[in-house]
């Protein structure tokens, strides 16, 4: 695969994965988590994300009311912990259902190997 092909593929994959990071965050933050920890967990679970994408995303979701936040000062380093709000939980359910519907629709498409 040459460089342009590689870039085209990366572009398509990125496009396809874009919305799934939001879904993954909303589901993972049922248990409170902070920026870097969430970044690692996302990567471990196959939702590889850039730090400079994730951090602003958390802020945005909080502003929309999908997440709530709280500073935890118990440890030596104070960290801001995010948690999915009831509204965010609803959104996660809708997104999950939608993703399943898309997967089913893709399975039903002709032209599979």
């Amino acid at each position: 695969m040459d460089v342009t092909e590689r870039e085209t593929l990366d572009g398509h994959l990125q496009e396809l994965r874009r919305g799934t990071v939001v879904l993954a965050c909303l589901r993972l933050l049922e248990r409170p988590g902070y920026g870097y920890g969430l970044l690692e967990e996302l990567a471990a679970r196959g939702f590889e994300t850039d730090a400079n994408t994730l951090y602003p995303l958390l802020r945005r979701l909080e502003k929309q009311g999908q997440l709530t936040s709280e500073w935890n000062t118990d440890e030596a380093r104070p960290r801001k912990f995010y948690r999915t709000s009831p509204q965010g939980r609803q959104l996660a359910t809708v997104l999950t259902d939608e993703l399943r519907a898309i997967a089913a629709a893709v399975d039903a498409l002709p032209g599979k190997e």
Partner: peptide
């Protein structure tokens, strides 16, 4: 596009992100 942090590092510490001893950091 910036590549994310090395995958090997990420998976290695993923399970214990919050347990890095505070002293090591200072």
């Amino acid at each position: 596009m910036n590549r994310p942090i090395d995958r090997e590092h990420a998976t290695g510490t993923a399970t214990t992100p919050a347990r890095v001893p505070a002293g090591a950091s200072t």
